[in-house]
């Protein structure tokens, strides 16, 4: 039996913590790049490893070796700190998501779990955008500042629908803990299979609506098309990232990958039943499969649209997304009350 301290250390640093998440994040980037490339009739990364699977790693190593430039006018402390924050915050949030228990092959408790950790995840998502804003602002570049303000404006637009959409399953599960929400999904699936009842249909439909709202908001959170105006390359030259180079840019890229994992992990845990699946396959495999599907959905959307202008994004969000999410939460309340 492993001593508890060692077990916690392994959980945080190796599996399912730091190293596991990092390698999975790079894998997700590869999946996303390869998939978008195939949609666009290209081949995508090809030469490093099998079908270019090591390309994200190679890119990161290359960036580590590059010259790291800090602009003269930049606020040096904030400028150096923010890439770390952008990388560390989504990683912290992933610790709250159930993937796989180390001691029990069929268990899936998260590394840290407590009542209300969903709120923490939401909070961390907002802090990520705040650090993005600070990163762009501290670089003292005009394009950087425009990108930073766009990121902050965008957050104002999608944060409320995102929060509401994520609270939906929590109301059904009567808990604000992601672990409990996953358990509720497993329980109700089990109940439905043993004794089918009609109440499951509206619940499933509502969860589907929540899933769509959540996906749209997470596209904005991840700055993927059509909501990539904070880093629009042809307009403002990668926006808030414009002055970053070398190691810091490498961290930002890794941070983006981890954010992609976090987004798909959230979608998986809140709407797709998390790491639960039919018996002979362990939870971690189910988790990886489901998140990969979410990554594909997110990257498919980014190949399908043109970039929206920031004012169109704000208008669209407040005109359609916010009312839709309020209707959704009302329906959730009513159905949950009837149950």
């Amino acid at each position: 039996m492993i001593p508890p301290v060692l077990s916690s250390l392994i959980q945080v640093f190796i599996f399912p913590g730091f190293i596991f998440i990092l390698s999975y994040a790079m894998f997700c980037e590869w999946v996303s790049r390869k998939f978008v490339a195939r949609l666009q009739n290209r081949v995508g990364p090809l030469y490093t490893g099998w079908e270019g699977i090591l390309q994200p790693l190679a890119d990161s190593i290359k960036l580590l070796a590059k010259e790291d430039i800090t602009p003269k006018a930049a606020d040096k402390f904030v400028f150096a700190l923010m890439p770390v924050a952008v990388f560390a915050l989504p990683l912290t949030a992933i610790f709250l998501i159930p993937i796989q228990s180390l001691t029990n092959l069929w268990g899936y408790s998260p590394i840290v779990s407590f009542e209300g950790d969903l709120i923490i995840v939401l909070f961390l998502l907002s802090v990520i955008i705040l650090s993005i804003f600070l990163a762009g602002w501290s670089s003292a570049n005009r394009f950087g500042i425009i990108g930073a303000t766009r990121a902050a404006l965008q957050m104002l637009a999608y944060e409320i629908p995102l929060g509401i959409a994520m609270i939906g399953p929590a109301i059904f599960a009567r808990s604000l803990s992601i672990g409990k929400i996953v358990e509720w999904q497993a329980q109700s699936m089990h109940n439905f299979l043993s004794a089918p009842n009609l109440m499951a249909i509206p619940v499933a439909l509502l969860l589907a609506v929540g899933f769509i709202i959540c996906t749209v908001c997470l596209l904005a959170e991840l700055e993927l098309r059509p909501f990539d105006s904070p880093e629009a390359e042809t307009e403002i030259v990668h926006g808030w990232q414009v002055e970053y180079s070398g190691k810091k840019l490498g961290l930002l890229r890794l941070g983006h990958d981890v954010k992609l994992v976090l987004a798909s992990a959230l979608l998986t845990s809140l709407f797709l039943g998390g790491p639960i699946g039919p018996w002979p396959i362990p939870p971690v495999v189910w988790f990886l499969l489901k998140t990969a599907v979410c990554v594909l959905i997110l990257s498919n959307a980014s190949a399908l649209f043109a970039r929206l202008r920031i004012d169109q994004m704000l208008g669209g969000s407040w005109r359609y997304l916010a009312p839709l999410s309020i209707l959704y939460i009302m329906a959730v309340q009513i159905i949950a009350g009837l149950m």
Binding site: F35, A37, R38, L39, Q40, N41, R42, V43, L46, N300, A303, L304
Partner: peptide, 13 residues
Amino acid sequence: LLKNAREKPCTLL
């Protein structure tokens, strides 16, 4: 998009 995803990439290596 779906049609192209099923086809061979047009890139010449």
